[in-house]
Structures are given as C-alpha cells and as structure tokens.
Design a protein around this nucleic acid. Sequence first.
RNA 1: UGUGGUAUGGUGUAAUUGGCAACACAACAGAUUCUGGUCCUGUUAUUCAAGGUUCGAGUCCUUGUACCACAACCA
Length: 587
Amino acid sequence: MNTEPKEDVKLESVSFVEEQVRKDLAEGKNGGRLQTRFPPEPNGYLHIGHAKAIAIDFGLAKKYGGECNLRLDDTNPQKEDGEYVDAIKRDIEWLGFKWAHLYHASDYFQQLWDLAVELIKQGKAYVDEQTSEEIAAQKGTPTQPGQNSPYRDRPIEENLRLFEEMNSGRVERGRMVLRAKIDMASPNMHFRDPIMYRVLNMPHDRTGSKWNAYPMYDYTHGQSDYFEGVTHSWCTLEFVSHRPLYDLFIDWLKETKGELPLDDNRPRQTEFNKLNLTHTLMSKRNLLILTQEGVVNGWDDPRMPTICGLRRRGYSPQSILNFIDKIGYTTFDALNEMALLESSVRDDLNKRAQRVSAVLNPVKLVLTNLPEDTLEVYTVQNNPENEADGTHDIEFSRELWIERDDFMEVAEKKFMRLAPGKEVRLKNSYIIRCSENPEECIVKDNDGNIVEIHAEVIPETKTGQANCNMKIKGKTIHWLSCRHCVPAEVRNYDRLWLVENPRDEIKKYSDEHDGVRGIEAMRPFLNPDSLEVNTHAYVEKWLLTCKPLDYLQFQRIGYYNVDPDSTPEHLVFNRTVGLKDNWTKKS
RNA sequence: UGUGGUAUGGUGUAAUUGGCAACACAACAGAUUCUGGUCCUGUUAUUCAAGGUUCGAGUCCUUGUACCACAACCA
C-alpha cells in the first residue's frame, strides 16, 4: 500500500515544455504571465490527439496559475462548420477544462487586413496572378531553390489596388493571392514567398459576406496569439519548420507598432510530439472517410478515437488524462501501445465502475435439490474497491443463467469451473456440485447441444453460513436468476484496425496498387469483427435504473458502459475493455 | 553536399545536468482472492555504431548510420 515513492517520482518527472514554463516564470518573462491557447479548426470532431494538446494547453495554465483561451481557428470557410463548435466545447468541458475566453481567428480579420496593407506599403508583400500550378512549379523542391514570380516586383500602388480588388468579390476564386516577399531560395520551403491571402468568395459563419479574401494559417496564427497576449504557443512537431515564419510575422507586426522585435512581449511557439497509437488511425481526413463510407456509425462510434467516441465507449475523462500523463511530451515521434491506454482505463474504472452480473452467452442451470418456489434476496456490494458506493439487491432462485463457458462436459486440466463431478461457488451464494455422471447433470437437445445443466446446492455454504468457508478447487462463477433478470443488447467492440500502424500500411498499399486512395486503400486493414452485437444476453434487474454513460463492470467479463440510446425497454451496453484475462491466453 | 529534428529494454518515458541506468505498460513466474479482475512479490530485458576526452560518459568531442518532418490558394 506504500505508494509514496511512486508519487515522488511522478512529481519529479516534468516535460521539457513544463521545464520551460518554470524557467520563464522564474525569470519573469512576459511580466510573469502564463497565457496559453487551444486553437482547433472547427472542421471536425476532436480526437484523443487533441486531448493531448488540451491537457497541456489547459493543464499547465491551470497548474501554474495562468489561463488558457479557446480559439476557433476559422480562417477557411470552405471546410469549417458551426456544427462542430458545440461538439468541440462539449468535449473540452467533458475532459474537465474551462477556457478563460472564447476567441475566433475571424475576430482579427480586420487587424490582419490592415497589417497586410501596411506590409504591401513597405514592399514586403505582393499580389501574384499566377495559377496555383505555376506557383507550385516555381516553388522548387526541398533540394532545389525556387524562382521568383514575374509579379514579385510590381509597383506598390498596383499591389494595393489589386489587394482591394481581391476582396471585392469581382475576382474569380484562385485568380490572385497575396504573398509575402521573403526568399524563393530559402532552404525552408515555408519562406519561399508564402501565401498570406487567397480569394474564396464565400460567406463566413461569423463575418457573413464582409470578406471575400481570407488569410492563411501562417499569416494568422502568430498574430492571433500576439493579439491575445499568449505567452506560450504549443503545437505539434510538424509545425517546427513553420516557427521561423510564425516569428517573422510577429516581428513585422511589432515593427509596425514600433515595438522592439526582441523584447519579451511576444508569444513563443514550442512543439511537442503528437499522439500516435497502435491499431489506430488519427487524422481527421481519414476519420471522415470512415464515417462517410459507413465503416463506423458516425463520429461518436465507440470504435472511433474521437473524444465523443471514447466517451461513448465508456472511457472516463480521468483515464484519458492519466494515459496522456504517462506517455509524456517529448520531441520523439513515438508510437504508443494501445495496451497502455487500456491499462489506464482499467485502472480508473476499477475504482469507478459498479459491479453487476451479466450473462452474455447463457445456458440454464437447475439446482435440483431446491424447492420450485425458492426465492432468496442478497444484498451485494456495488464496488468492493469503494465501500461508499453502497449496495443493491439481487434475487436467487432454483433456475439460473450461467455462462456457457463456465461449464465443460469434459474438463481440461486447468479448468476450474463447473464440470461433471466438480464444485464451484456461485458468487454471493452457495457452493454447488455437479454429479460425476454426465447423464445426471447434462441435458441435451436432439442435435447434441447442451440446453440445461443440473447441479445440487451444498447446504449451509451460502455466504455467512456455517459451512461457507468450505474449501473447494473450483472458482467462483456469476449467475442470474432466470425469473428475475432482464434481456439486454451487448455490443462488444474490438480494435478497428488489424495492423499496428494503419497509416503506414495504407500508404504502402496505395503505393503498391496504382495509388488507390481513400476507403479502397483502407479495406485490407480493417478488422471485419470490430463489432459483435449480442442480443441474447441477460443482466440484473437493477440495471433497469441505470443511466446513459454509467460505468459498469460485468463481473468476470469486462468494463461496460450504458449506451446513450439505451432505455429500460431496450437496454444497450457497450464494452469499454475486457478484464485482464490470464486464463484464455494460456488455454 | 537542401533545411530542420530525433535515436535509452518489446513499447513509452526518466536519470539530481559528467557520478551505481530507473519508472510505467507489456511478457513470464508466484502468492492472495467469494471476480482466472484488483492488491502483493519476483523474473527476463535497455543507452544506434565506431573512435576520442576523462579516475569516471546515456550525458562532452569527432566520424558514421537509421528514422521523422518540410514542396496545399489546408490547419
């Protein structure tokens, strides 16, 4: 029970990001403030990778007395939809965090526009009228320098006029862009005159029809951080090469405001490794394909790595946060094992889940030495790990459902459940015994299937009775009284992907098969048995009172969660994760 | 001879900054158990390579090697 040393170790283990925060705070940078932001694009649902970002953006702000804003990065009305905003907010709150302010990148459209005009006047930006293909061709490659656009040195007045034109609605989409004049030969591709504005000619959820030209991410992000007084801007590793641009645009902004570019009053971007999980595909684009192709039943399908999917699967917020804490924040592109996530959820649910009995694959057990009208009521603990969770009642009678797996006609060597001549304990009840003669304890139908098992109760062995501590070789099995239980639908989920690293496998398959894309490249790696719907299960009557998202443990089977669509008339349970099983693995 | 980044057991992460390589997960073995769960004990297994500096190197230096990111009018 001594967990002290472990706690100490945990406290000492601080990521390089957190180390930086401590240092900056100690040195009084940014006036000793800690201001962060979580900046999702509202173009899809949040997944567990976002949870890793949320945990550090909100978590570190909270831990060190700073604040974190939620900023919706809504610079591209083509892809974004207000539909997603509520889901994003709900998922953040469900994880247990609160934002200090809610902002939108679109709040800054006017300021961004004004700076762009200023930069044109300074000769730092120009309107390019080439096609996207031409611009791409001129950009060069990582190993070859690019070439200057023929429009690069057009007069400032013309640039100003054309930039206004870009936003007028009269310029066809794609006809013109505003580019920063930096260096077409830069070894950093992002410095080869990056595009600041493009013409979209479409209305925006929040700014209506005011804008026709919209700013790009690189031009927007750093300045948005600056406007909000962000001190620490955390993002994932793929943005490392964007950082010089992030800094440059902030420098240009500060210069026009007459501030020194090198003073403390500026946000700093730091990158950490994004979350990769075995047997999981994380990118929004691919998750969208899975929903569109009907591979899963929507974004909140319990097989999805989305926050809403994990919630419906039965993951607790704490289990997700604990997992993220364990994998840490580094600059190494890691691939984390699903087993660690599963151990995190088992660990949390062990403390949280209410213990109940469910029989998933029922076979009838008749206790032949009991009177027909036997009825006993037992009061059982809701969670032996937590007394405070209280108790509930279960009924016992002469005819019970037990798991088909808990009986073997011919017991193999290490099988410790029911079989002819064997004894087992019925959980919370009597010890029972099967006759050694199979004919006396097994009833079969004409096809040879076992339809009924007969056994006898050994007197005085019920919990609390004189003979209750009788030693037997058999294990304890769970059961339900046939007359007192209720039917239920149980959905057993398994991993969606057969391979450890679906992203790489899909890419490889695509390369080897004529570049097939989308669902066709995914199919070979999808697990056809990722969902097993069981409609012949029984559960305790007590579960008639359960509520959606209640955490349950079906004793000896696994952790289950009440589906949001479950009703007392039609109970539906989702398997979160099975119990650790040292038996089936060996057999 | 593009630029930037990263290499520590099977996986992920530490190592008081040059001083006994450890923690978690996984695997295996055992003990306890009215859940083949939990709790508990133990076992296996680690510094990319080769040189160098040093009393001492995961950490510093040199030379290699492998892997990742960057060429959207996406974010």
